[in-house]
Nucleic acid binder design. Sequence first.
DNA 1: TCTCGTTATATTTGACAGAATATAACGGTT
DNA 2: AACCGTTATATTCTGTCAAATATAACGAGA
Lengths: 123, 123
Amino acid sequence: MAAKSERKSRKRFKSQFRIYFEEEIALGPGKSDLLRHISETGSISEAARRMDMSYNRAWLLVRTMNRCFKEPLVLASRGGDARGGAELTKTGQQVLALYQQLDAKVKSATRHPLKRLFSYLKN
Amino acid sequence: MAAKSERKSRKRFKSQFRIYFEEEIALGPGKSDLLRHISETGSISEAARRMDMSYNRAWLLVRTMNRCFKEPLVLASRGGDARGGAELTKTGQQVLALYQQLDAKVKSATRHPLKRLFSYLKN
DNA sequence: TCTCGTTATATTTGACAGAATATAACGGTT
DNA sequence: AACCGTTATATTCTGTCAAATATAACGAGA
């Protein structure tokens, strides 16, 4: 780890794509990230904690996603055995997978021109 | 035009990539668009008018770009024969071309998974 | 030296997204 | 019936980014 000349480059690249439905963002980097964490933790609030995001915000994102898609992406339950929780629906899993696939494709497609662009930036 | 079932789809996709230098956005969708218009019009203010953007904002974007790259992308002059104007430097042209290339690559790379994603959205 | 469209720059205003805060409901378990 | 961690929802606050506004400088040409 110590061998790299700079511990963190001053040059960065951020690619983000958003899917809109009407005037709302149905899916984007934040929402897909949230989906992943919900899938991993089985809980909206635990996902939010791990992302250092307020539960309130996380819940609003979930609500928007569920509203924009034909079928809900997240199914949540209150109380009960595990004192509530949430999970991705089949649709949610598929949508997340597609988004991640999109992400990977963009990464590989931009690799080379990006490198050239970076060379024009200051050091 | 009247035959299409919807005059404008409610589903949209926006892909944008930004290149950061330190904490500033060195290049992004807006800035590259501005570069194009400056190249076409030979003027920052005319470019701004066509983009329905204030001259002030356009100038700030140009200033940021010029600050982030090794060499300025835009060269401007005041007064004089044409009463001032601006043009892209050779570097500016190359950077713009690279960005547009990036854009095209992303478009073609995302085409198919995007279509599938759209099918999950409400109509 | 006045004009004119441009570049150059500072400052003030305003809108809006996200943060913060508050509260309630749920429903198994104990 | 009390408890607990979660989901669910409304409302207020606030920091930030863009818009708006204001001025000045430039410099060839008339």
